[in-house]
Simulated scan of single mutants.
Amino acid sequence: MSTAVTTSEAALGGPGPGCAAPRHVAVIMDGNGRWAAQRGLPRREGHRRGVEALRRTVRAAGALGIGILTIFSFSSENWSRPPSEISDLMGLLRRFIRNDLVDLHKSNVKVRVIGERTTLSPDIAGLLREAEDLTRANTGLVLVVAFNYGSRQEIARAAQRLAAEVAAGRLAPEAITAELISSRLDAPDIPDPDLIIRTSGEQRLSNFLLWQAAYSELVFVPLYWPEFDQAALEGAIAEYRRRERRFGGLAAAGAGP
C-alpha cells in the first residue's frame, strides 16, 4: 500500500473555489449488510467485502495525499448485534491485522486506535496494541481506527478525567475550557477531521466524533461501503473542495450569503 504517490488537481476536479484539499478525512463505513442482502449473500460476505474496500481506501488516501484517515470500524453499540455476527467481525479484524499489518508498516502507515479498550478481550486488545507498537515510528499516512468507540462515551471519559483533577485540587472548575476538554479526548494530538464521509446514503453521525465534527464538512455517498473505491473518495473530496469553510465567520468578499 504505497503512500508516496500524489494525484493531479484534475483528478479531484481542479482546485475549486472553496476549500483546499482535506488533511484529515474520517469515514463511517456503512452498508455492508445491505450490500449483501441485495445480492442474496450472508452478512459476513458483506463484511468481508467491506475489508477489501478498506484496503482500497487506505491505498487511495495515500495516493491522494491525505495525512490522516479515521475509520469507524466498530462502535460501542455494535456489541448488541447477534453473537455470530460479532464473531465474524472479530475474525475479520484478526485476519486484517495479521494479513495487512506488515504491508501497512512497509508503506510507512502509522496506526492509532481510539475507543474504550479496558473492556476488550485480551487477544483483541493485544492485536490493537501490536498494530500501534509496530507502526509507532512511521511517518506516512496516519490510520486512526475507531474500535469499540462511541463519541458520547469518549466525551464522558474526558469529563471524568477533568473531574478527577478537580477533586484532587489540581484544577479549578472555572478553568475548564473547550480546549481543555479536547486535550482529554482519546487522541488529543490529532486535528479535527476536515471531511467526514458516510456511505450507504444514511445522513447522520451515529455517535462518531461528535465533538471533533463541530466544523467538519459532511458528505453522504449513496454507495454501500463494499462499493467504495478511489473514484468515490475523489468525488467526496471534490465536493468538499467546492465548499467554503467559514468556522462561524463571514464569507470571503464577493462570495454568496
Score class of each variant (00 low, 15 high):
residue 77 E to G: 12
residue 246 R to D: 05
residue 194 D to K: 03
residue 250 L to K: 14
residue 196 I to A: 09
residue 197 I to V: 15
residue 191 P to F: 12
residue 19 C to I: 00
residue 86 I to V: 15
residue 112 R to I: 00
residue 95 R to T: 14
residue 1 M to W: 01
residue 129 R to L: 11
residue 168 A to Q: 08
residue 226 P to C: 13
residue 61 A to H: 04
residue 141 L to S: 03
residue 156 A to T: 14
residue 73 S to V: 09
residue 60 A to N: 04
residue 192 D to N: 15
residue 122 P to I: 05
residue 61 A to I: 06
residue 13 G to L: 03
residue 231 A to W: 01
residue 92 L to R: 03
residue 222 P to H: 13
residue 166 V to S: 06
residue 20 A to K: 04
residue 213 A to I: 04
residue 52 E to D: 15
residue 135 T to G: 01
residue 142 V to N: 01
residue 111 V to W: 03
residue 4 A to W: 11
residue 150 G to K: 12
residue 61 A to W: 01
residue 19 C to H: 09
residue 37 A to L: 14
residue 79 W to M: 11
residue 89 L to A: 07
residue 223 L to I: 09
residue 72 F to E: 10
residue 183 S to H: 05
residue 28 I to Q: 10
residue 16 G to R: 08
residue 57 T to E: 02
residue 152 R to T: 12
residue 169 G to Q: 03
residue 44 R to W: 10
residue 20 A to G: 09
residue 68 I to P: 00
residue 54 L to E: 04
residue 180 L to I: 11
residue 134 L to V: 06
residue 209 L to K: 04
residue 21 A to C: 04
residue 35 W to P: 03
residue 2 S to H: 13
residue 186 D to S: 15
residue 200 S to Q: 09
residue 107 S to L: 04
residue 154 E to T: 09
residue 244 E to A: 07
residue 160 Q to R: 15
residue 97 I to K: 01
residue 8 S to T: 15
residue 19 C to S: 09
residue 136 R to Q: 12
residue 116 E to A: 15
residue 58 V to N: 02
residue 184 R to I: 02
residue 76 S to G: 13
residue 146 A to G: 14
residue 77 E to A: 15
residue 10 A to P: 00
residue 113 V to N: 06
residue 132 E to C: 12
residue 168 A to P: 01
residue 239 E to F: 05
residue 149 Y to P: 13
residue 51 V to F: 04
residue 83 P to T: 12
residue 86 I to E: 09
residue 201 G to H: 07
residue 216 S to L: 08
residue 135 T to P: 00
residue 154 E to Q: 14
residue 11 A to T: 01
residue 78 N to G: 11
residue 44 R to C: 11
residue 86 I to F: 02
residue 79 W to E: 12
residue 45 E to D: 15
residue 191 P to N: 13
residue 158 A to E: 06
residue 140 G to E: 01
residue 208 F to T: 08
residue 72 F to M: 08
residue 171 L to T: 03
residue 239 E to P: 02
residue 51 V to Y: 04
residue 94 R to A: 09
residue 130 E to L: 14
residue 193 P to C: 10
residue 221 V to R: 07
residue 152 R to W: 11
residue 125 A to S: 14
residue 144 V to K: 02
residue 196 I to F: 10
residue 112 R to G: 00
residue 81 R to T: 15
residue 224 Y to P: 00
residue 90 M to V: 10
residue 138 N to A: 09
residue 242 R to N: 12
residue 36 A to P: 08
residue 131 A to V: 02
residue 229 D to G: 14
residue 225 W to T: 08
residue 89 L to C: 05
residue 228 F to P: 01
residue 234 E to Q: 15
residue 235 G to C: 06
residue 235 G to I: 00
residue 4 A to V: 13
residue 68 I to R: 06
residue 154 E to K: 10
residue 59 R to D: 13
residue 162 L to M: 11
residue 74 F to W: 02
residue 140 G to A: 08
residue 253 A to E: 15
residue 32 N to Q: 10
residue 179 E to K: 11
residue 228 F to H: 04
